[in-house]
Design a binder for these strands. Structure first.
Length: 549
DNA sequence: ACACCCGGCGCC
DNA sequence: AGGGCGCCGGGTGT
């Protein structure tokens, strides 16, 4: 059963109850303040909620204590189906663009007046769009995979709202102590004490009393004046030089980064009531990875992770999928030798044991080179060995790279398709330089498509992991029979590409850890069936994020 | 004043 | 001449 909801105007909700084929059974019109109670009643039957934007509808249900089991985020699904190679030629793919193709409108975070502020619904009825999308999937070359992909992206959208609702437990006092310890005392209107001291050292070492180390262009000139032959102010270059400015400047850069990105200003803006609430953008990256739009959740530096602390009587259960991308590549390509190497908990060590490479470092760089398209350094040197030992995996990524170079699209395991490449057609009329540029662009696009298939499929695995885990945690917390809201049970509080954090009452932490492992195994089965590839996760029950791994 | 880009660097 | 991001301050253009 589906329930398709939309808002025909301020303060109004239109809900259509549909059968499994999308046929309309009933339509109700509600005032928006009646909607959560109506939805809570409906949710007992576990319908699939169908709406234009999960971010617009789900927060107000969660605030009213209504947890939703499943949904379809029509705007996300439209984008998938609009661009999927497997759905090319379907009615939906051929239809002219309409407002369902527009990017999601952003709703002011934490607004209580959601309906009043929201823009009008897109043209047309969500029930109608659902039928259009179902038809496109049925007509497509990969109905099973596209059904899974649309469901997986949609459960991701639910999780994103739940993460924002729950927030990541954050101890602002501990964060402040970390900042004071590293940066020195806070100075109103100026740099923190230790940073200012380093600026003085830098100026003395350069004999330039006014230089501002935050200004790359003037700093570069000053460095060159002082006799350093550098082309940039990057730490990679600086650390190759022996000059009294190098040590204080590198130290300053480290502190400046912390101060500007995750210092007191960040703390004041993003942490409230003991929770960090970043803005997630599910499928915000072309590969299907999540992006973020505020708060920098996906770049949380290790320096401040000690401030992530569970509530009293609760634990953090931190899980990380071990070498996810190589394992995904082994499964997609059907490379039995690589799959065998992955029987080891540490796939890189497994590669060493096959005899293909001598050291774990070589294994790691060899794998990363295969996935990213590296040709230089250690990854370039490992390439022939990798090709000999893992011919199917290497051929798989090579073929994705060649497709990109030829201007063709590539698709992930579930069918998310890369953006169209530039036409690489050979043009005799172009100059030598132009052709060289075109070849270089073509190779760059090949590295993008090579990585796209692996990164995108890893993102799909992560969505399946979250989706499975989410159900398991709900059951662990008592399921539907228990009236407690989401945040009073074991629940997800953080997601970072291949890493999850669960906040759980201490007595349920071990069970949550088991669920994290079981959900990983289930994700592997959902995507790859009985393929002999394992997806181990390292799990730690901790009292601070910094104590994991 | 605002919008935009860039260098640099944090994360995966 | 290794993929994907977001954020910051500085710098430039309007």
């Amino acid at each position: 059963m589906y329930v398709a909801v939309s808002s025909p105007g301020p303060g109004l909700v239109d809900a259509a109850v549909l059968d499994a084929d999308g046929g309309e059974l009933e339509r109700v019109h509600l005032a928006s303040d009646e909607f959560p109670a109506w939805a809570a009643e409906r949710e007992r039957e576990h319908p699939r909620w169908v709406w234009a934007d999960t971010k617009r509808w789900y927060p107000l249900l969660l605030r009213a204590g209504v947890r939703v089991e499943r949904c379809l985020d029509l705007r996300m699904c439209r984008l998938i189906l609009r661009t999927a190679a497997a759905a090319a030629g379907t009615g939906l793919a051929r239809a002219p663009r309409d407002r369902w193709d527009d990017p999601a409108h952003t709703v002011p975070a934490a607004s209580d007046a959601l309906f009043e502020l929201a823009e009008p619904e897109p043209d047309g009825d969500p029930a109608e769009e659902l039928r259009r999308q179902r038809a496109a999937i049925a007509e497509s070359a990969a109905p099973g995979r596209l059904t899974l992909l649309t469901a997986a992206d949609s459960v991701g959208a639910l999780v994103a709202v739940e993460l924002e609702h729950a927030g990541l437990p954050w101890d602002a006092e501990r964060h402040d102590r970390i900042l004071v310890e590293l940066l020195g005392e806070r100075v109103p209107g100026g740099r923190p004490a230790r940073m200012e001291a380093l600026v003085a050292e830098i100026r003395a070492a350069l004999d330039d009393p006014d230089v501002n180390p935050d200004s790359a262009s003037t700093l570069l000139k000053s460095l060159q004046r002082a006799g350093l032959r550098v082309g940039s102010t990057s730490k990679w270059e600086l650390r190759e030089h022996d000059h009294p400015v190098v040590q204080p400047l590198l130290a300053y850069k480290r502190l400046a980064r912390l101060y500007t990105a995750n210092g007191w200003a960040w703390l004041g803006e993003w942490v409230r009531g003991g929770r960090f609430r970043p803005v997630y953008v599910p499928a915000g990256v072309v590969t299907g990875r999540w992006a973020s739009d505020g708060g920098g959740a996906l770049q949380l530096p290790k320096q401040v992770r000690a401030a992530v602390v569970p509530d009293p009587g609760w634990k953090l259960v931190v899980a990380d999928a071990a070498q996810l991308e190589p394992r995904v590549l082994a499964a997609m390509s059907g490379d039995a030798a690589m799959a065998r190497a992955g029987r080891a908990h540490d796939l890189y060590q497994g590669l060493v044991e096959t005899g293909a490479v001598e050291t774990r470092e070589q294994a790691k760089y060899g794998m990363l080179g295969a996935i990213y398209g590296g040709t230089t350094g250690e990854s370039g040197r490992m390439r022939p060995r990798m090709e000999r030992a893992f011919p199917r995996a290497m051929a798989f990524v090579e073929s994705a790279a060649r497709a990109g170079e030829a201007g063709e699209v590539v698709s992930t395991w579930l069918g998310r398709t890369s953006p169209p490449g530039r036409d690489a057609a050979y043009d005799e009329t172009r100059s030598y330089d132009e052709r060289a540029r075109a070849r270089s662009d073509g190779r760059a696009w090949g590295r993008f498509t090579r990585n796209f298939v692996v990164q995108g499929t890893a993102a799909e695995w992560a969505l399946c992991w979250m989706g499975a885990l989410r159900r398991m945690l709900w059951e662990l917390g008592g399921g539907d029979a228990d009236p407690r809201p989401l945040t009073e049970r074991p629940h997800l509080v953080f997601f970072l590409h291949d890493e999850l954090i669960v906040h759980a009452p201490a007595e349920l932490a071990d069970a949550a850890a088991d669920a994290l492992r079981a959900a990983a195994a289930e994700a592997g089965r959902i995507l790859f069936g009985s393929a002999p590839v394992e997806f181990p996760v390292t799990v730690a029950v901790v009292d601070s994020y910094a104590d994991a791994k």
